[in-house]
């Protein structure tokens, strides 16, 4: 059963004195249970609006949105207990301590008090939990927001740019946490991020959004495979002589520092044979995979 299911969702913002802004334009999206699902898109592509529609903060103009197979926002009260969310900057009462802010939320949802210290410990904020939130750095507020999202031990964790404000160590820790949650067999993490490296490292699946529409969705490896170029990197003992052989055979060869990039190789074994037949032996041959950044830029540019 999909955890998130969106069919033909539209959302247009009508703002006084400004032209209408089409934020989501016929979005289809399915997120199956378990693992970490990345949600990528350039600024203004409709990621946050989609998340807000799922959480009932923004009403969709048309289309159907489901969480745990229940239509939202109507059935949101039935499923909200299984959802933890952090949308953009976490929002807390600045004059309350971090712990008091979490206490208020925990009380609202019926979460037992001991769970508060557990999540504070999880995000490394236990020592500063008694301080007022107004004294927190952006990273600490972000950690507190993640702690709040974890309070309910949610089956679906929706995180919108959770790395904002985190220092490098914090980002590494957070990615570890997300991987751990995504592999526990119970939790589905829906991660909206503009950090392509983060998504590539953490996510099993990815959906890329552009202009309010889904341009590609699937396993990260499959998405990357759609943009494989067939290029390989080769390293030779005698680079100049090797290149001459490749040029003569009709390959396009470009320099990659101390090795060569051979473009559009349909069969790597044939390349190896060709060079060996001319007395050149490879010390390295590696396919050059498209990274998510390349795929992302290609797809969003095309859209």
């Amino acid at each position: 059963m999909p955890v998130i299911e969106i069919r033909a969702a539209h959302k247009t913002y009508h703002r006084r004195g400004k032209p209408d802004e089409k934020a989501v334009d016929g979005l289809d999206l399915v997120v199956e249970g378990g693992g970490v699902h990345g949600f990528l898109g350039p600024n203004g592509s409709g990621k946050t609006t989609t998340i807000r529609m799922l959480l009932g903060l923004v009403r969709a103009g048309s289309g159907e949105l489901r969480l745990f197979d229940r239509v939202v926002p109507d059935a949101l009260p039935e499923v909200i207990g299984d959802i933890g969310a952090l949308v953009e900057t976490p929002l807390f009462f600045p004059t309350f301590s971090g712990r008091r802010n979490l206490e208020l939320l925990a009380m609202t949802a019926g979460v037992p008090k001991p769970r508060i210290d557990e999540v504070l410990d999880t995000v490394g904020l236990l020592d500063r939990a008694g301080d007022n939130v107004k004294g927190y750095s952006l990273g600490m507020k972000q950690r507190l927001g993640i702690a709040a999202a974890l309070l309910k031990k949610p089956q679906l964790l929706i995180l919108d740019e959770p790395s904002n404000g985190l220092d490098p160590a914090g980002m590494v820790e957070m990615r570890g946490l997300l991987r751990q949650l995504g592999s526990d067999g119970r939790t589905t993490v829906f991660l909206s991020s503009h950090l392509l490296g983060e998504v590539e490292q953490v996510c099993d699946h990815v959906t890329i959004l552009a202009r309010g529409r889904c341009v590609v969705s699937g396993r990260v490896a499959d998405v990357l495979a759609t943009r494989q170029t067939g290029d390989v990197r080769v390293r030779l003992d005698d680079p100049a002589a090797g290149k001459a052989v490749l040029d003569a055979a009709g390959f396009t060869v470009t320099s990659m520092g101390d090795c060569w990039r051979v473009h559009g190789v349909p069969d790597a074994a044939a390349l190896t044979r060709l060079l060996a037949d001319h007395g050149h032996y490879l010390s390295e041959l590696a396919p050059i995979a498209a990274d998510l950044e390349t795929v992302f830029l290609d797809l969003t540019r095309e859209a």
Binding site: T108, A109, G110, V111, P112, G176, L177, T187
Partner: peptide, 21 residues
């Protein structure tokens, strides 16, 4: 950051919005 507890249903008490408010 690491998950310090096993996942499970954390919502065990009756929600008390009124008390929280």
């Amino acid at each position: 950051m690491s998950v310090g507890v096993q996942s499970g249903d954390a919502v065990t008490e009756r929600p008390r919005l009124l008390r929280a408010e």
